[in-house]
Amino acid sequence: MITGTPKPIEELLEMLEPYENIIVAGCFGCVTVCRVGGDKEVQVLSSTLRLAREAKGKNLQIREVCLERQCDPEYLELMRPYLEEYQAVLSIACGAGIQFLAEKFSKTPILPGINTGFLGVTERQGEWTERCQGCGDCVLHLTGGICPVTRCAKSIFHGPCGGSVEGKCEISKDVKCGWQLIIDRLKSLDQMENYGKIKPYKGWDSSRDGGPRRILREDMI
C-alpha cells in the first residue's frame, strides 16, 4: 500500500489561515489501511482543526467527506455538485489523490493534509516499512524476493557493501542490511549461483528518472 504520515497541525492551520469554509476529504484506499487518511481520520482531524481555530477566535466550517478512492475520476466527480460552495479542499489521500483532485477541479485550491510516504507493508499496528520503489524493472526473482533497490541504502546490485555489520546497515542499527537478507534468503533457497554474476547497469529510465511515467494497456482501451 501507499503509506503516509499526518502533517503537523500547526502546518495545517497555517495553510488554512485564509479559509473559513472547507472540505476535508479522506480516501477509503491505502490511506485508510495505514490509518492516516480514512473516514475516521477525517472526523478526528476536522474536530481538531475546528477546536484549534475556535481557540484563536476564528471560525472554520468543515464538510467531512471520504471518497471510495481519490485516484479514480468517477469518485472525484461525486464532489463536483457541492464543491463550489467551499473555498478549499484539504485532502488526506496520498499525493496521487491530492493531485488528481487539483487536476479535476481547477478553480478550487487543493491542500495536502498528509505527507505521502512509500510503498510498504504493515509490520505490526503502528509500524510500516518500505518494500518497493516502483522502479519499473523488477528483479526479485534473482534476489530471493528481496529488493536491492529499496532495501539497500545504496541501492547496490552487488552487495553487501563494507558497511554491513551483524546484519545491520551502516546508516542505522534499526535498519536491516538488505543484502544480508538477500544472501540469507538465496542460501535458504539454494540459489547462491545468482550471487556470483555481474549484473548489467540498471536502466533507471523505467524509474522516475525517465520522467513522469505512464502505463498504457492497449488491451484495455
Binding site: 545504496k154 547496490i156 546490485f157 552487488h158 552487495g159 555481474i198 549484473k199 547497469y201 540498471k202 533507471w204
Partner: peptide, 8 residues
C-alpha cells in the same frame, strides 16, 4: 546517486 555500483 548510486546510479551504478562500485562493481559496475
Amino acid at each position: 546517486v548510486f546510479d551504478i555500483d562500485s562493481m559496475q
